[in-house]
Simulated scan of single mutants.
Amino acid sequence: MRFAPAAAALSLCLAMTASISSAGDTGAPDPRAAALIAQGQASLAAGESQAAIDAFEAALAVDPGYTPIFIDLAEASRQQGLQGKAIRYYREALERDPGNFAAISGEGAALVEKGALEKAKRNLAKLQSLCGDNCPETVALQTSIARGVPARLAVESKGDSTASN
Rank of each mutant, 00 (worst) to 15 (best):
Q142G: 03
S129Q: 15
K114H: 07
K119Y: 00
T143M: 12
D30A: 06
D25P: 13
I20L: 13
E48Q: 13
L127F: 02
S43D: 15
R2T: 12
P64V: 00
R96D: 01
S77F: 01
Q39I: 08
E57W: 07
T162R: 02
G148D: 03
Q39W: 02
A35G: 11
G108A: 08
A76T: 09
K85P: 08
L94T: 06
A55C: 05
A154S: 02
A55D: 03
P5D: 04
G40E: 11
A45S: 15
N165K: 01
L60S: 01
A125Y: 04
R88C: 03
D25C: 04
A86P: 03
S19M: 02
S43T: 00
S144G: 10
F3R: 09
S77H: 08
S105A: 15
I37R: 03
D97V: 14
V155C: 11
G47M: 14
T17W: 11
D97T: 14
L73W: 06
T17F: 09
G65W: 12
G108P: 01
A61K: 06
R122V: 05
L44A: 12
S11L: 15
A140Q: 14
A59V: 08
A51H: 03
G159L: 01
T26A: 00
K114M: 06
R152M: 13
S43E: 15
L44C: 04
G159K: 05
P68V: 09
M16A: 09
S144F: 01
K114F: 00
G65Y: 11
E113S: 12
F3P: 05
I87M: 03
A6F: 10
E137F: 15
S19V: 02
S164N: 05
S21E: 02
D97A: 11
I53E: 05
R152G: 09
A110Q: 00
P64A: 12
S11N: 12
A28P: 12
C13S: 00
P64T: 05
R152I: 15
D25I: 10
A154E: 13
P29F: 00
R91M: 15
V62F: 08
R88A: 02
T17L: 12
I145A: 10
Q79W: 01
E107N: 08
K121Y: 12
G148C: 04
L111H: 05
A15P: 07
N165G: 04
E137N: 15
G115F: 10
A146W: 08
A18S: 01
K126H: 09
G132R: 13
L82P: 11
A125C: 13
S21Q: 13
V112G: 05
Q41Y: 12
L12R: 04
A151G: 13
A51K: 09
G108H: 09
A102D: 15
A59M: 10
C135E: 15
L60I: 13
A8Y: 07
Y90L: 06
A154R: 14
A103W: 08
M16P: 07
S161E: 13
I69P: 00
T67H: 11
L127T: 10
K114D: 02
L73H: 07
K121L: 12
L124P: 06
A6L: 01
A61I: 04
S164R: 02
M1K: 14
C131L: 10
R88I: 03
G84E: 02
P136C: 10
Y89R: 02
E118D: 13
L124D: 00
A38P: 01
S161T: 06
T138S: 03
K114Q: 08
I104W: 10
